[in-house]
């Protein structure tokens, strides 16, 4: 895998989840660490398997990012329509949360497009 913009975006999305995983692991919650470990393992295994499996795995991850971004934006919108009393939820679903959610959504959409199956060159004459 050569270093390129799609690879860089993929690496950034994985890094974002890894940072979250480390923060939570330090305070006793292992789920984000288990999640990113499973995702990384799946991506590496698929990449090593070859025959397009790596591309499929990245597109599944990209699709997850799109769903994740949409879910987060939906959650933030829902909390505007139906406010909750939790100061933690209120404080952490503001414009920064929405901006980050939009970035996940854009990154996912970009990765879906960037890891499309390459078009076979047309054979002529």
């Amino acid at each position: 895998m050569r270093l390129s913009l799609p690879v860089g975006v993929l690496a950034l999305t994985l890094a974002a989840f890894t940072v979250r995983a480390v923060i939570y692991a330090l305070i006793g919650s292992p789920l984000p660490l288990v999640f990113i470990f499973a995702v990384s393992l799946a991506l590496i295994t698929a990449h090593l398997a070859g025959r397009g499996a790596g591309r499929v795995a990245v597109r599944v991850w990209a699709l997850w990012l799109v769903i994740y971004g949409v879910f987060r934006l939906g959650l933030a919108g829902l909390l505007v329509v139906a406010p909750v009393s939790s100061p933690h939820a209120i404080a952490n679903t503001g414009w920064v949360f929405m901006l980050v959610s939009a970035l996940y959504l854009l990154a996912g959409a970009y990765l879906v497009a960037a890891w499309r199956k390459p078009v076979e060159p047309a054979v002529t004459g």
């Binding site: 305070i27 006793g28 984000p32 987060r72 959650l75 933690h88």
Partner: peptide, 17 residues
């Protein structure tokens, strides 16, 4: 202190307390 969310799945979405 920092603390996990009330439900573990929220740790994938929300920052810690």
């Amino acid at each position: 202190y920092r603390a996990p969310n009330v439900h573990p799945l929220l740790d994938l979405i929300m920052p810690p307390f």
